[in-house]
């Protein structure tokens, strides 16, 4: 039933606009709208005002928010932290990348197999081409060495170790050949999961005076790290 009190009538209109009237009340309300033009006009005026005021209130919220955002001072500390955080993440990612590379990237021994300094000297002596003659013992050393390289290439580090250890015990080897033997031996140890022997050979190689056998720096780092990695894996 339509309220008789003016205030209650306005509240009734408001409830209708909010959709909080029951179905029966709603029906009565809509009958009143049709029946009473003054009631209908007031109802429309209240609705128009309510919509406008809500919109103006939101517009004010927007204005205030823009003003606040424009007045907000830059946040150097937060940016710095963010920058440091990002920098730290990048650094950590780089370190992990380097560690992964050092850990899982094997030394490419095939590239050392193409060492012309050794192969040419041996071939020339075999083909009887004019050049430095090799003694039978030297020729055996070469053969042992090349066999060891072949074993390594075939994934038989244990066999390679046999040959190379024999060569490493020979005192009369010239420095170039000696370092080549030590380098291949320590790689064979690594492939055979013998980090202690590899470490000892690595130290021998380091102490063998001036480095004449060409070993790339990245390969040196790889074996250095992989020796430690294998030791770590064993103790864990």
């Amino acid at each position: 039933m339509r309220p008789t009190n003016q205030l209650e009538q306005w509240e009734w209109m408001e409830a209708y606009h909010r959709g909080t009237l029951s179905a029966d009340e709603r029906l009565i309300f809509e009958q009143e709208l049709k029946r009473d033009p003054d009631f209908s006009r007031e109802c429309a005026q209240l609705l128009a005002a309510d919509k406008a005021l809500r919109e103006l209130a939101l517009a004010k919220t927007v204005r205030n928010a823009v003003r606040a955002e424009l007045a907000a001072p830059p946040k150097p500390i937060q940016r710095l932290r963010l920058g440091r955080g990002r920098l730290a993440s990048v650094l950590v990612a780089c370190v992990l990348l380097v560690i992964s590379y050092l850990t899982f990237s094997q030394v490419d021994l095939e590239s050392y197999r193409q060492d012309v300094t050794l192969t040419q000297r041996y071939r020339e002596s075999e083909d009887d081409v004019a050049g430095p003659d090799l003694t039978p013992q030297q020729r055996t050393f070469y053969r042992e060495f090349f066999d060891a390289q072949a074993y390594l290439a075939n994934g038989q580090p244990q066999l390679a170790i046999g040959n190379l250890e024999k060569l490493a015990r020979v005192d009369s080897l010239r420095p170039y050949f000696k370092q080549a033997v030590q380098w291949h031996l320590l790689n064979a140890y690594l492939l055979n999961r013998q980090p202690d022997n590899a470490d000892a050979t690595f130290q021998l190689l380091d102490q063998s005076g001036q480095s004449v056998y060409p070993i790339s720096t990245s390969d040196r780092w790889k074996v250095w790290w992989q020796i430690r990695w294998q030791k770590l894996g064993r103790s864990a």
Binding site: A44, L46, A49, A52
Partner: peptide
């Protein structure tokens, strides 16, 4: 509350181009 509704009716009338 009464004053609020009266103000709203006046504003509504202005928006709807009605004299009040």
């Amino acid at each position: 509350k009464v004053r609020k509704y009266r103000c709203m009716l006046y504003l509504g009338a202005l928006l709807r181009g009605e004299k009040r």
